[in-house]
Design a protein around this nucleic acid. Sequence first.
DNA 1: TATCCGAACCCTGGAGATCG
DNA 2: CGATCTCCAGGGTTCGGATA
Length: 306
Amino acid sequence: MHNVDLNLLSSLDMLLTERSVTHAARRLGLSPSAMSRTLARLRVATGDQLLVQAGRTLVPTPYAEQLAEQVHELARHARAVLQPMGNALNIATLDRTFTIRANDGFVDLVGPALIATIAQTAPLVRLCFVPKPDKDAQPLREGMLDLEVGVIGSNAPELKTRLLFQDRFVGICRTGHPLLNKPGVTAERYASYPHVVVSRKRRFFGPVDDALAQQGLRRTVVMVVPGCANALQIVRHSDLIGLVPLSSLGNGAASAGLQHFELPVPTPPIKVSAIWHPRLHADPAHRWLRETLLAVCNRAQPTATI
DNA sequence: TATCCGAACCCTGGAGATCG
DNA sequence: CGATCTCCAGGGTTCGGATA
């Protein structure tokens, strides 16, 4: 197919509406001569005279009359497509499924409030939360994921991010665990119990071990699990001490049968961010989702939010 | 290999003249 | 009076050479 100048569509629509080169030119902000040559190009493109002289005016050919309504609709749709995107979004009628990769604790903590907020303004929007087996950026690049919630990695610098809230590590143990029988969890007593840690990379050591080492202490990690939900379940039914982000304790149900406590050693804060591909940055629906998520996180994490 | 720069070419549109 | 033509200027695109 040879290339067609789609500007001709708008000009043809105006010419068929006005039935005058001068008037059509005026309405499109062109000179009559320019519009005249546009009409000449239209005649070449269509192989029809389109408008012919009848005395001092132009009248449409039968072919032009046949085209008029279709051209008008096409021009109207073309103008709608080229409107700024922000003007086109109607949240109330938005029918879309957003796929979000997040850990279980975040889903427990934010999921109910998020979907409740969305239901009020965008009743046709659906959320699909998927697990975080890793931090691979490829699903974001390929459009398999709309959004990821987690700590920013360094393997995909092109990704856009926005801080949702600041989390921190806490210790967990089963209800009635001897560690909490006495007031105050000292570093010595904390290190004296066996531990379970969460690590997708199967690491037995982390920031807590560094902090303990600075005090000449060392804890014994007897188990590594891939996710926080695994750690919560293990700790709930054993004497192991766990280490999880506070947000992973969710809305209360996840922490049933568990007690959490402040760590006796300092650990770096956990910056939880929304992460998305630049392709979606200007998408008004995606922008709305990000703003909504941020607002819900601000309400759900009043003590940890910055 | 990528980027920059300049020359040549092409397209568009304005001004003015001409025609019906 | 309005449509169309020619001429011309301005801007964009393409292409080839130079450079890092």
